[in-house]
Nucleic acid binder design. Sequence first.
DNA 1: TATTGTTATACTCTATAACTATA
DNA 2: TATAGTTATAGAGTATAACAATA
Lengths: 137, 137
Amino acid sequence: MKDPLLDLPGYSLRRAAAAVMGEFVARLEPLGLRLSDVSALLLVGANPGVTASQLGRMLDIQRANMVPMIARMEAARLLLRQPIDGKSHGLRLTEIGQARLAEAQRVIHGFEAELMERVPQAHREHFKPALDALWRD
Amino acid sequence: MKDPLLDLPGYSLRRAAAAVMGEFVARLEPLGLRLSDVSALLLVGANPGVTASQLGRMLDIQRANMVPMIARMEAARLLLRQPIDGKSHGLRLTEIGQARLAEAQRVIHGFEAELMERVPQAHREHFKPALDALWRD
DNA sequence: TATTGTTATACTCTATAACTATA
DNA sequence: TATAGTTATAGAGTATAACAATA
């Protein structure tokens, strides 16, 4: 069976991302966390007081889509919202959130290490710089 | 604002794929094609008579999710289904489908060329091999 | 005027379970 | 028994439009 898709770098990018993210989501499942939860935990942990709108801009998630995400994490007692002024709220991790973040960080770092091991050594140092050029420039 | 996500290769992979696929989808929009339509056009074009199930296995799409996709493309007169035996159907491109595939191929090859140009030259030859190691092994 | 938070809505993609009919 | 096609359904992610309140 011919597969012309296998010659396309863009297709490789799509399939690799799908495969890797699928595995990562599976590792997060025992922690009861979604992919977006982990991003939020890391960012709020590193930037206490950040607002949902700022978070959305960093993650490229629409403001409107941050609402249910923050609500879910607040309901899970992972973070809390403190009024900054009449319209903004600063986000902070609860103690539960900090503990969950620590667990997530162990999963993340283990996973990232394994990920890089799966990239053949000859290509390894080129992996992240090549990808970053495609979305950070 | 600190962003610990920027140190994670897996995050770079996810964001790069999202950015690139978003741009590609925008280029396909004038053709009235979705991402999955293009994969199907390419594969059916290269393998006339292939079944929906075979296609699903190549694309890693569940059998059940192939149904509305094939139905939509059949309704758009891009492909047709011919009975192979009592339970299987072979897929073939119509003339419209072949013409649309040719248009799509021009978009694809232009896009892929631009994509590779955006990868810094020093990393370029490592890009696809590194990605392929993550999902084809 | 611009921004924050919010509600409502819709679409795409994906996953699962179950069923029928055929190989 | 295994496979092909199908239906129905649910979850997740994402996009847009609109609104109130505040900066």
